Computed example of a mutant assay.
Amino acid sequence: MDKAVFPAGAYCRAVEGIIAAGQRMDRHGWVPATAGNISIRLPDGNLAITRSGGHKGLLGADGVIAVDMAGVPLNAGDRPSAETLLHCQIYAHDPQAGAVLHGHSVASTVLSMLGGDALVLEGYEVQKVFAGQTTHDARVHVPIFDNDQDIARLSRVVAPHLDGMRAGYIIRGHGVYVWGADMDTALARLEGLEFLLACELEKRKFG
């Protein structure tokens, strides 16, 4: 899309980054229909985040809005995603977080519905994409939380576990949340996690 359509400055760059991330996630099939949401922390402490109801692979500048750290739109009438509070929670918990990604892949959806409160990943070289991981010879726990349409209540369930999340988390039957210091880091972690989840799904197919 022509950069001239964007407002100037940091918000412009955030919008461009979110649009590019949406297109990349769409190419992998991680944001079907209107699923998923994407955000970036702005220098003033507010957030740029995808508007509710849009296809993330077809975003234009009007598909991204600004909200404050409580998830309240800065422009009256804008409608953020229902899950904006989960983005706000991550940014509030981790001052280094600069971008948050939420996708709905087949692997994360199916694996999370097979039971258990976490997936354990071990033996994979790609584990090293996650913060603090330097070897394949380690175990990475990915918590799974039951889906809840009451996002405030869900955020309270997630909160006690945020410190230990190296690879993000999964909402059961729903999808993953991953974040990083910037969009490139967040995307690398998302792609790493989705690759590992796809491997786990394939392993289970073979028993």
Rank of each mutant, 00 (worst) to 15 (best):
D2M: 09
F6N: 06
A8H: 07
A8F: 03
Y11P: 05
Y11V: 11
Y11I: 08
A20T: 08
M25E: 05
R27V: 05
P32C: 08
A33M: 14
T34Q: 07
N37P: 13
N37S: 08
I38K: 05
I38V: 15
S39D: 08
S39N: 07
L42H: 09
G45A: 06
N46Y: 06
R51A: 14
S52I: 11
S52W: 08
K56L: 07
L59W: 12
A61S: 12
G63A: 07
A70G: 13
G71D: 04
N75P: 09
G77S: 04
D78T: 13
R79P: 07
H87R: 03
C88S: 03
Y91R: 07
Y91K: 01
A92W: 09
D94C: 04
V106S: 06
S108N: 10
T109V: 04
V120M: 05
L121I: 10
V126T: 14
Q127E: 15
Q127W: 05
V129L: 09
A131G: 08
H136I: 12
H136N: 13
R139L: 13
P143V: 01
P143N: 00
F145L: 12
N147M: 11
N147P: 13
D148P: 12
D150N: 15
A152G: 14
A152E: 11
A152C: 02
V157N: 09
V157H: 05
G164A: 13
M165N: 14
G168A: 00
I170Q: 04
I170F: 00
G173C: 09
V176C: 06
V176A: 13
W179F: 08
A186K: 01
E191D: 01
L196F: 11
C199P: 10
E202K: 11
K203W: 14
F206S: 10
